[in-house]
Simulated scan of single mutants.
Amino acid sequence: MAVRAKSSGVQPAAQPVSKVFGAPPQKAKRAPGIRPGLFYLAFAALFGTNVLTLVGFLMAPDIAALLNGQNNVVVSAYEDRIAQLRVEVDRLHSRQFAQAGDINLQLQELTQQQEVLLEQHQLVKQLAAKAAELGIETAAADPTTDDDVAPLAAIAPVTATGDLAEVSASMANMMDDSRMALAALSVSATESTDTILDVLGGLGIKPNMPDGLTDAVGGPYQPPVDGSDSSGIVDDANDVYLALARFKAARGAIDLAPIHKPMDSLSRISSTFGNRKDPFTGGRAFHAGLDFPAPKGTTVLSAGYGKVTFVGEKSGYGNLVEVTHLTGLVTRYGHLSAFLVKEGQVVNTGTPIAKVGSTGRSTGPHLHFEVRRKDVAVDPGKYLAAGKRLAHFLGA
């Protein structure tokens, strides 16, 4: 039972209430917060969502299969898929390697073609230079400089088949140009040779020509091999070699034949070959040569390569020099005032052999020039005309 304090005008300070033993507990006031019902409801919803997610996960085919004991089947399927991917990757790599290999092979072929092209280039230059030495000039055979053939390493990097094809086509064109140059040399040399042979043949001079070079072939028999034909540039070069050899022989025949001027200047002919009025008798007489008036002491030259077979005086000729040539022809130089050679001496075309005079049956200083075949006089005018026509082959 609580004891009440006497009331007074002044409120006493609050005193702690003592708990009376056996009295019922007083209810405390509830603090504000989340109600337990809402908490349990949220927990139940989250739990249900997790359960549904787990059930959906377990319902997945592959996972369900794994959980149902089908591990080997699923693993095998994945391994097969991975193996297929690897095969595809390997196939792509193989294609790249094959393409790279094709490019490398084509580059090797281009390098080999370039080596052949360089050899052809040098061959054309050598043959063109040789032809120029012999007096054969042709614009188509004008050798290019070494800079015109660039090494393959100097070509821009080749990255595509189209680039390779373009480079290969360029090399093929250069090879064709080389073959055209060789063909031009062969044609020019052959035409020059034919001209020389025609002119000399008209005089009865037939030089020995190296025709046998074309027959010099041989070797043991072997079965044919595909892609190993040796025709082409080699045959073209051989044709040029033979054409140049023939031209050289024909050109040499020009130098040997007695068709060159017996004096530096033949400005006038005072008497021609054949029948004429004799200067001493006034009647008709045969003149066996050509007379070239010239001052006494003018140098007389050999009309061709040969051997001096007579030096002395002969009736009608006065002082005479006689040269026998390899062609069998003989040239005579009459009415001389002095001799510059001796019998047995070998002379070349243009070698000084005597001096102009007026000895023998002569009316004044001049050179009597005579050509004889088998001891029969022939017209020297034809030989001198042939020499004039062929002079450009000797650079004269």
Rank of each mutant, 00 (worst) to 15 (best):
residue 78 Y to N: 12
residue 317 Y to M: 00
residue 214 T to H: 05
residue 218 G to L: 10
residue 277 K to P: 05
residue 124 V to I: 01
residue 107 L to D: 05
residue 186 S to D: 09
residue 150 A to K: 15
residue 394 L to N: 08
residue 187 V to M: 02
residue 47 F to I: 10
residue 227 G to N: 04
residue 123 L to I: 06
residue 45 A to F: 11
residue 65 A to H: 06
residue 161 T to E: 14
residue 163 D to F: 03
residue 195 T to V: 08
residue 64 A to C: 01
residue 106 Q to R: 14
residue 244 L to C: 03
residue 234 V to S: 11
residue 77 A to P: 00
residue 28 A to N: 09
residue 124 V to S: 01
residue 261 K to A: 11
residue 175 M to I: 08
residue 223 P to T: 06
residue 204 G to I: 01
residue 150 A to P: 08
residue 175 M to C: 03
residue 367 L to P: 01
residue 206 K to C: 07
residue 235 D to S: 15
residue 216 A to Y: 04
residue 183 A to E: 09
residue 75 V to S: 11
residue 251 R to P: 02
residue 174 M to N: 06
residue 313 E to F: 10
residue 26 Q to K: 15
residue 262 P to V: 00
residue 216 A to P: 00
residue 330 V to D: 01
residue 141 A to N: 08
residue 277 K to M: 08
residue 295 P to G: 11
residue 34 I to M: 10
residue 97 F to D: 13
residue 114 Q to W: 15
residue 389 R to C: 00
residue 389 R to W: 00
residue 233 I to R: 06
residue 344 G to L: 11
residue 254 I to Y: 01
residue 233 I to S: 13
residue 240 V to W: 04
residue 348 N to H: 10
residue 41 L to V: 12
residue 73 V to M: 03
residue 247 F to Y: 06
residue 86 R to Q: 12
residue 99 Q to S: 11
residue 196 I to N: 00
residue 375 D to W: 05
residue 332 R to K: 10
residue 127 L to C: 03
residue 276 R to M: 04
residue 19 K to L: 13
residue 228 S to L: 10
residue 275 N to W: 09
residue 174 M to Y: 00
residue 117 L to W: 04
residue 337 S to V: 03
residue 11 Q to D: 11
residue 177 D to Y: 11
residue 30 R to D: 03
residue 128 A to S: 12
residue 111 T to C: 08
residue 8 S to W: 14
residue 252 G to Y: 07
residue 162 G to L: 10
residue 285 A to H: 03
residue 71 N to Q: 14
residue 368 H to T: 01
residue 250 A to T: 07
residue 195 T to W: 02
residue 283 G to I: 08
residue 15 Q to D: 03
residue 394 L to M: 07
residue 92 L to N: 14
residue 393 F to A: 04
residue 308 V to K: 02
residue 299 T to F: 01
residue 224 P to F: 13
residue 167 V to E: 04
residue 102 D to E: 14
residue 264 D to E: 10
residue 255 D to N: 13
residue 305 Y to D: 14
residue 37 G to R: 13
residue 22 G to R: 10
residue 133 E to P: 00
residue 23 A to P: 05
residue 137 E to Q: 12
residue 303 A to P: 01
residue 344 G to E: 12
residue 143 P to Q: 02
residue 339 F to M: 07
residue 1 M to H: 11
residue 353 I to T: 01
residue 346 V to S: 15
residue 3 V to G: 04
residue 44 A to G: 14
residue 94 S to K: 13
residue 283 G to P: 06
residue 110 L to E: 03
residue 53 T to Y: 14
residue 112 Q to S: 12
residue 162 G to V: 08
residue 84 Q to I: 02
residue 37 G to W: 05
residue 344 G to H: 09
residue 244 L to E: 01
residue 8 S to A: 15
residue 41 L to N: 05
residue 233 I to W: 09
residue 72 N to A: 15
residue 183 A to Y: 11
residue 269 I to Y: 09
residue 277 K to A: 12
residue 1 M to G: 12
residue 124 V to C: 01
residue 183 A to G: 13
residue 44 A to S: 09
residue 235 D to K: 13
residue 242 L to I: 15
residue 130 K to H: 12
residue 186 S to M: 08
residue 102 D to T: 12
residue 238 N to C: 01
residue 130 K to R: 15
residue 126 Q to L: 07
residue 222 Q to G: 01
residue 145 T to M: 03
residue 72 N to K: 12
